[in-house]
């Protein structure tokens, strides 16, 4: 069976099936949730409504496949294959991504050059802080590790560094949920809301290290990367 024939078949089945109103309802719910997610102010609620919209889309996709009631459809196999491969990559790679980065950047534990950094992060998240050789001020989190460049340690004062570390520690605390967000986005052919995550991480950082330290740190780091 060819793809275009199948797409045509989807259209016919949807029109004839008793399930059609159900699929339509799911799509309406998903669009409503999506619209709400753009209107909601709070980043956490915004993320929640966005994820709910994606879940509604997944349900609509499952319902559509279910009502097809025919065997050996190419699109179903393609979609399942896509979901399985992307899921394996998403959950497999994110777990080992920090090991990979440590080797690639030749990163070393930051505790060996600046003692308080690891003690500070230990209070916030179960993560190891690594530093790597680069003058460009940069910090990022992967798996259970936080990476900071020597340039970042040079450029920031202690309060600003605390703000950056708290921001990354928030990411570590929520990293175990990230593959689900990304996988959901892949399966619904949409994107995950990374800007909301950054806002939430910044809120946490401001709580821990103060708004002032956060914004002056952001100023120094952003200047290099815009």
């Amino acid at each position: 069976m060819n793809i275009f024939g199948e797409i045509n078949c989807f259209g016919i089945c949807l029109r004839l099936s008793d399930f059609a109103p159900f699929v339509a309802l799911l799509i309406v719910i998903s669009i409503a949730l999506l619209a709400t997610s753009f209107m909601v102010k709070d980043p956490k609620h915004r993320l929640l409504t966005f994820v709910s919209a994606q879940v509604a889309v997944i349900l609509a996709i499952i319902a559509t496949f279910y009502l097809m009631e025919c065997e050996g459809m190419l699109t179903i196999y393609l979609y399942l294959g896509y979901a399985a491969v992307s899921g394996a990559l998403m959950f497999g790679i994110t777990r080992y991504y920090d090991r990979l980065m440590i080797r690639r950047l030749n990163a070393k534990p930051a505790g060996s050059i600046i003692g308080w950094v690891q003690r500070f992060v230990d209070q916030l998240a179960a993560a190891t802080v690594y530093y790597y050789d680069s003058a460009a001020p940069r910090a990022f989190a992967a798996g259970r590790s936080i990476f900071v460049s020597v340039g970042l340690l040079e450029a920031l004062d202690d309060d600003e560094l605390r703000a950056v570390l708290a921001h990354e520690a928030w990411h570590i605390r929520n990293n175990s949920r990230m593959p689900y967000l990304r996988q959901l986005a892949l399966m619904t052919f949409s994107s995950h809301k990374s800007s909301e995550l950054e806002i939430m991480a910044d809120r946490f950082a401001a709580e821990i290290a103060g708004e002032e330290a956060l914004s002056s740190a952001r100023n120094k780091v952003d200047k290099v990367f815009n």
């Binding site: 050059i113 600046i114 530093y131 050789d133 003058a135 020597v150 340690l153 040079e154």
Partner: peptide, 10 residues
Amino acid sequence: VDNVNGRVRY
């Protein structure tokens, strides 16, 4: 990488 008075420097 040098540590001068608790500050990391290149």
